[in-house]
Design a protein around this nucleic acid. Structure first.
Length: 509
RNA sequence: GGCGCCGUACCCAAGUGGUUAAGGGAGCAGUCUGCAAAACUGCGAUGCAGCGGUUCGACCCCGCUCGGCGCCUCCA
């Protein structure tokens, strides 16, 4: 039984979907005016994994994630660069798909944009005015927080407390300092849409209410986003949505913790952020930090806890992941049909499969689930000493693949890195199928071919040739030559050679 | 000022009112090996920031203190 920590109640609760076997979930995406940083990556990843686990648990998931493409920051950026807002948003939506694609983030069921839902937004604002929750002042429309008695329920704040600590200048036209804009009249040169209150654009919060209702209905199961959205964004969404419909809005509120640098929140305003592409560039995508390594690293901490981003953490993730692929290589090499350890493996498969579910059912405890993988890895390695049949090895690999698929991990062929041979039958393989479609309008093509291969990279065949050469030398007891070849491949090609007990060798990048 | 979170071994990181406080990385010592790598085995917190309290019993519940952080303004 899945239980989820619900910000609304501050407790872990058993998860009960509104409709059997279906989950409808909305997650606040990004405002597209700059490249995504690791914090954005974490948020996207957390909900990607939640979505995958729900699907793994036999739910059909209607997953909506928006792009905020009307906003002060976008306007500012457009003015700075002397281009249109559309140019800015198109550029960063493309970048979003490139970066998240490398991380293996699957596309949501719907990815609506605010600019494409003006009719719904205006209608919602209208409804709020009619019901007395909102008022117009000279082309602006504000939500009147005092009219919504449950205001503050999500963030556990009282209106009085908020007022006392308000750090913003109070707009005299507002009836209460916490009243927030549903609709803003536009200044010349700003993007604007016709409305009953004159030309203008929506406030930030209203778009999510309008789009979630449009795609998921008035009441749905899960609403998520970063911790920092609890107040005011999600609080305001609830006020607007419940005010307009008189019904419950989202039932479970999930919020992920921050990525930190030196104990501080990674954020634009503090300037202490790394973009996703910076991390890949710094480390060398495909050689040191693959999308999988970053993914693994981000999942080693529970989603609600702060996560300290560090080079050391990344390296550790790489090393641990390598351990799994070493095992997969061993599993692949087994050809024998006899397996003294087969019966024990059966028990282990069941134990780890159950352990994984238990961990994930407990509020998506990915670190505990990863520990199950690690235990499993050790157990299979040990049973390999006992002896496993080819069939059993296949079953072990299959469990790694299916459970790993929930995390988007362990899906690669063991000969990975720059070749990037993914298991083709894996639906969550990267690049995801939707990125492979050539005619997808508005969606950029994957960056699969833009990486430079190392200079003078040898082909598999050439490496195999070197290996034969080395094996010959070893047979002649010419260890000096053998070691030279090994060293050459290691240094120039990043290829590691391992000698097996039977006298033959294996290699890997 | 208001609301909230965190503090577990060298590092990362789960977890529980009472059996040996998961797992990983690093380290050390072995097995194996021409060497190496991989894998395996063993070692590693008498203690979970500190101090009180509740309890038969707390790392886990309550209070306080110290240290760090977040939200209250845009923010994943």
């Amino acid at each position: 039984m899945l239980s989820i920590y619900n910000t609304l109640t501050g407790k872990k609760e058993p998860f009960q979907s509104l409709q059997p076997k279906t989950v409808r979930m909305y997650v606040c995406g990004v405002t597209v005016y700059d490249y995504c940083h690791i914090g954005h990556a974490r948020s996207a990843l957390v909900f990607d994994v939640i979505r995958r686990y729900l699907e793994f648990s036999d739910y059909q998931v209607e997953f909506v994630k928006n792009f905020t493409d009307v906003d002060d920051k976008i306007i500012k950026r457009a003015n700075e660069q002397g281009v249109s807002c559309d140019a800015i948003t198109a550029e960063y939506i493309e970048a979003y798909y490139q970066d998240m694609g490398k991380l293996g983030i699957r596309q949501a069921t719907h990815e609506p944009k605010a600019t494409e839902h003006m009719a719904e937004i205006i209608e919602l604002v209208n409804m709020l005015i009619q019901k007395g929750f909102a008022y117009e002042v000279a082309g602006d429309v504000y939500f009147q927080v005092e009219k919504y008695q449950a205001y503050g329920r999500l963030s556990k704040r009282k209106l009085e407390d908020l007022q006392a600590g308000a750090r913003v200048e109070v707009d005299e036209r507002k009836r209460h300092s916490m009243d927030f804009a549903l609709w803003k009249s536009s200044k010349p040169g700003e993007p604007s849409w016709e409305s009953p209150w004159g030309p203008g654009r929506p406030g930030w919060h209203i778009e999510c209410s309008a789009m979630s209702m449009r795609h998921l209905g008035e009441t749905f199961d899960i609403h998520g986003g970063g911790m920092d959205l609890i107040f005011p964004h999600h609080e305001n969404e609830i006020a607007q949505s419940c005010g307009a419909t008189g019904k419950e809005f989202a039932r479970y509120w999930i919020h992920n913790g921050f990525v930190q640098i030196k104990q501080e929140k990674m954020s634009k305003s503090l300037g202490n952020f790394f973009t996703i592409r910076e991390v890949f560039e710094k480390w060398g995508y495909r050689t040191q930090v693959t999308g999988e390594v970053l993914r693994y690293f981000l999942l080693t901490t529970h989603y609600r806890s702060p996560l300290e981003f560090s080079d050391q953490g990344l390296q550790e993730a790489k090393r641990t992941l390598d351990g799994f692929y070493n095992l997969f290589q061993r599993l692949d090499e087994i050809t024998q049909t006899e397996g003294p350890g087969d019966s024990q493996l059966q028990q282990v498969l069941e134990k780890r499969s159950n352990g994984f579910r238990e961990a994930m059912d407990d509020d998506f405890n990915t670190p505990a689930a990863i520990a199950q993988f690690q235990d499993f890895r050790g157990e299979v390695n040990r049973l390999l000493e006992t002896g496993l049949s080819k069939k059993a090895c296949g079953m072990a690999r299959e469990l790694f693949r299916s459970l790993g698929g929930v995390f988007g991990l362990l899906l690669l062929s063991w000969k990975k890195d720059w070749e990037f041979r993914y298991l083709d039958d894996e639906p969550t393989a990267w690049p995801p199928p939707w990125m492979r479609q050539q005619d997808r309008s508005g969606v950029p093509q994957p960056l699969i071919a833009d990486e430079e291969l190392p200079v003078a990279a040898l082909s598999d065949e050439e490496i195999e040739g070197k290996l034969v050469e080395r094996d010959e030398a070893r047979k002649q007891k010419d260890f000096k030559k053998a070691d030279e070849i090994r060293q050459f491949l290691k240094e120039s090609q990043g290829v590691t050679i391992e000698d097996k007990p039977d006298g033959t060798s294996r290699w890997k990048r």
